[in-house]
């Protein structure tokens, strides 16, 4: 069972811990409101809880969503995501309950999902790290940053699916796996996550317990260091 919370990326800095300089991303994490509970027995057919983050004024809510918030008797929020859970876990929560970042503990590994920064329509050198022209002299012209050949001739007579070509880069949902939580500040609803997470400042991120290393606690900094 992996628990998740919705938050907002606030910025990047560094801290000093156990003799090491640690690059951190500051994330405003929660409190999240539980808006809906879904159960396998109910009409949804699966177990999940629906989390909401970032309150917004009533006048900015459309009619459809207004009903949804009213049913749960919660304040309207800007960002809603669902987390799949086990049936027992769903019963632990109540609709309207606030969930805060003390769900996570220092040293825990998490996966962080966000929308990566958009880079626009980019060529193959930037988008796929291709090398461009081998040689820039001896008659080469107008080919310096091109793709090169994109396939064979009559056989197979088509371009391979998934061939890396120019196109939109960034602005996609992206996940950074196994990043460590190095600080939890329940007072200010902030967590510090080691390294970088997808997206720009003020972008929404979903912090979820690690898929690959669930429950693993790692030490922070240099082992046995004094400060």
């Amino acid at each position: 069972m992996r628990m998740a919370l919705i938050g907002k990326k606030l910025g990047v800095t560094q801290i000093f811990k156990n003799g090491a300089r640690i690059p951190v991303t500051v994330v405003e994490l929660g409190p999240n409101t539980i808006i809906q509970k879904k159960t396998r027995e109910g009409k949804d057919g699966y177990d999940a809880i629906q989390l909401g983050f970032d309150e917004k004024p009533h006048k900015k809510v459309g009619k459809a969503m207004k009903g949804h918030f009213q049913r749960a008797d919660v304040k309207p929020v800007r960002f809603i995501r669902e987390v799949r859970c086990t049936a027992e876990k769903v019963t632990e929560f109540e609709v309207g309950q606030q969930v805060s970042c003390d769900l996570f503990q220092v040293g825990e590994l998490v996966d962080v999902t966000g929308t990566s920064k958009g880079k626009g329509f980019q060529g193959v050198m930037r988008r796929h790290n291709m090398k461009g022209a081998k040689q820039k002299t001896h008659g080469t012209h107008e080919q310096f940053r091109h793709v090169g050949s994109i396939g064979c001739r009559t056989t197979p007579g088509e371009v391979d699916k998934g061939k890396r070509l120019p196109g939109q880069m960034g602005n996609t949902t992206s996940t950074t796996q196994n990043v460590q939580i190095v600080g939890v500040d329940t007072e200010n609803n902030r967590v510090l996550i080691r390294g970088s997470v997808p997206g720009a400042r003020n972008g929404y991120v979903i912090v979820k317990q690690s898929m690959k290393k669930l429950g693993r606690i790692k030490t922070i900094g240099i082992e046995g260091a004094s400060s």
């Binding site: 606030l10 910025g11 800095t13 951190v24 500051v26 405003e28 200010n188 510090l192």
Partner: peptide, 8 residues
């Protein structure tokens, strides 16, 4: 950024 200042 006041939050970052606060952390630092």
């Amino acid at each position: 950024n006041t939050v970052i200042d606060d952390v630092e």
